[in-house]
Design a protein around this nucleic acid. Sequence first.
DNA 1: GCCGTTTTCGGCCCGACTGTTTTCAGTCG
Length: 575
Amino acid sequence: MKNQEIAKIFFNIASLLDSGQRDFRPIAYKRAALALAALEEDVAEIYLDNGLDGLEGIPAIGKNLALKIEEYIKTGRINEYEKLRKALPVDFTEMTKIEGLGTRKAKILYQKLGIKTVKELEKATRAHKIAPLFGFGKKTEENILQGIEFLKVDKGRVLLGFIMPTVKQIVLKLENLKEVKKTSIAGSTRRMKETIGDVDILVASDEPEKINDFFVKLPGIEKVWAKGPTKSSVHLKQGFDVDLRVVKEESFGSALQYFTGSKEHNIATRKIAISKGLKLNEYGVFKGAKQIAGKTEEEVYKAIGLLYIEPEMREDGGEIQLALENKLPKLIGYKDIKGDLHCHSDWDGGENSIEEMAKHAINVGYEYIGISDHTKFLHIENGLNKEQLLKQHEAINKLNLKFKNKNVKFLILHGCETNILNDGSVDIKDEVLEKMDYVIAGVHSSLKMPRKEMTERIIKAMNNKNIDIISHPTGRLILKRDEYQVDLEKMLKIAKETGTILEINSWPERLDLKDIYIKMAKRIGVKMIVNTDSHQKDQMRFMEFGVAQARRGWAEKSDIINTNSVEELLKYIKK
DNA sequence: GCCGTTTTCGGCCCGACTGTTTTCAGTCG
């Protein structure tokens, strides 16, 4: 898909333009970039089917940008971008990751000192060449250097799953203050984006100074970027920034709506407010000088004529239109999951025994768990062979009997996670697979296969009547490894035909399928399952992130099969 | 550069904090 490539170029053009005279073109390019990045369909196909008219049908793309997209599809480059880049060869994407450094200062640094990269900037900063520049100063120089240091360690964005425990702890500490009336996580953390730039926390209180004083002294803080009476920003040793905002209780809902974002969603909602003669800001919805809403988010959305929109949907990706038309999907809830079918035990080198995993699942409130250890091809993961699988089957039968005798209403299902080999076969024979309650198959090797071969490889596995679920269907590792090359649309169509279930893997680094593919799967009518891929019992908490991804993909309860009772679930498994 | 229940021109979300300069531009969300 060329969508992301073109989106990236448009982002760069936006930065290049933004550093110059101020007009609205950077905003237009940024909006277009976001629209492309969120687009399900391949722009190249849209162009192939409907030409320039098709491209102009994409939101935020007009005549001019349609021509640029055409140029890129045809030639692999956009001339105007090359020209701009030549005139101003600054790596804005990298440079502006430094806290406090934007496009305009970056441009000045290039003009005065010829700085193009973070590396060159670091050198100049250490040589104290920044502070004497007009508009800069000693403090700015220090902040830039610190920003560079932080960037080296954490590369700007962190995994949602990595920060969540810390964020919940901070919220808990704030909640315990007697001056605090309400708290909430906000920002992209509340929208459950897979990676987070910085964390936003909102508090309602009549004594904002006290809250900010307390906040900037929390343990684990390495640097205070800013501290004011209502707003503070800090950097944690763990490697990310946290912003706190304190408002009065009567504005908590509007502040939460504003502070949750996304920025694009906010712009759209504020425009709707304006169109109704109202004003929406973080303090409330106003008719003239009179506040007509703001205490709760529900109230805010209602006041501007919209249904309440779940945070995970607030990306300005069509949700506002649906809210206007009363057609919002009823998203799967965090408590709708009844069991986890991708759990590993100590049989394949996991941390806990099958019984320990099962007991933990009971504590979580599940009705069933599926044990799916790796099979033999994965030597490093102690993959099980045929004999071990059959032995494991007996062990599980015994445990189930034990639960039954103790009147515990809980079932352990026996599965396995087989490996899809290069030719599309799997590493365990059908006669063994037939004995399992269900079978997962995943690609764990030869990840760099060409797109056509990889697609055929997975399709062949899906055509195997014993294979029920494809695990982590695109193989990506967030911030580490791209997805492998595969024709996902084709894969989804075959999944629909064969009744194969696609996994939404909850592992914080995977979250695979990701949101836009979940939307696609839903549209095509493919059933999905949210699993954790736990290798020890505590990792079952990752379910939160998988469900979040499902919600970001607008999945409803009926799209996700492990929201079903075990009897209904087994109906979905291929016969 | 895009877009339309203020439609083909004239808008384009809005406010807090910092650092540097001395009234505000830049950055962030």
